[in-house]
């Protein structure tokens, strides 16, 4: 099972399951991070944390510790590079 914190910079993935503390998880889903949603890891901040994600055309940042609770699977291998 791959979590978001293991994704390489530039890689696109599909959300499989959103976990974590309830109110954070709820807000994350309200911002459109839902199972089946595609997202791309744009970059990681120079000091190693947080990371920047592209979700539904919007850039948002979360920390690695929270990214750990988002399960994803890769799309690049099956669907080819976008």
């Amino acid at each position: 099972m791959m979590t978001l914190s293991a994704v390489a910079v530039g890689q696109s993935v599909v959300v499989r399951r959103v976990g974590g503390e309830r109110s954070f998880r709820r807000r994350l889903m309200e911002l459109g991070v839902l199972p089946g949603t595609q997202m791309r890891l744009m970059r990681i901040a120079p000091l190693g944390d947080p990371m920047e994600l592209l979700v539904r055309g919007c850039s948002m940042s979360i920390r690695r510790s929270e990214a750990d609770s988002i399960e994803v699977h890769s799309i690049d291998t099956s669907a080819g590079s976008p």
Partner: peptide
């Protein structure tokens, strides 16, 4: 503890 969840607006 409130986890960071921040938009980087255009």
């Amino acid at each position: 503890h409130v986890p960071l969840l921040m938009e980087l607006p255009p």
